[in-house]
Amino acid sequence: MKKFLFLIAASFIHGSYYSQATKKTIPCYDLSAVLKVEPTSLYKPHLDASRSFGIKILHNSKTVSKYVSNGKFHKIKKSGKGYRVQKLDYSRPWMVSKAKATLEKIGARFSKETKGHTFTVSSVTRTLEDQCRLRKVNTNASLGISSHNYGNSFDISYIRFNDVVKYNPKMEAALEKVLKYYANSGMIYYIKEKQQSCYHITVRNY
Rank of each mutant, 00 (worst) to 15 (best):
Q131G: 12
R109K: 14
Y181N: 08
I13E: 09
E193Q: 14
Y167M: 12
K66A: 12
K100Y: 04
Y150V: 13
A174T: 06
L143A: 02
A183F: 00
V178F: 05
N70D: 12
I201A: 03
Y17K: 14
K81W: 05
L175G: 05
L179K: 03
Y150M: 14
G186S: 07
W94N: 01
Q20A: 15
K78F: 08
S157D: 07
Q196R: 10
G82L: 07
K177Y: 12
S69Y: 04
S91F: 04
K98Y: 05
H200E: 01
K170V: 15
K78Y: 06
F12W: 11
G80I: 07
K23P: 01
Y189K: 00
N138K: 15
S97A: 13
A21T: 05
K56I: 09
N184Q: 12
L179F: 03
I159N: 10
T22R: 03
G116M: 11
Y67W: 04
S147P: 00
G116K: 06
A99P: 03
D30Y: 09
D130Q: 04
N205Q: 13
F4E: 14
A10F: 06
E193F: 07
I188C: 04
C132W: 01
K192G: 02
S41E: 14
K87V: 13
E172K: 15
L31H: 09
K100T: 09
T127G: 07
D155I: 04
T120F: 00
S91G: 09
H14Y: 13
A141Y: 02
V96E: 00
H14D: 13
V137K: 09
I55F: 01
I76W: 01
F53E: 02
S146F: 03
A173F: 13
P45Q: 12
G82A: 07
K72T: 00
E113C: 13
E172W: 11
I76K: 00
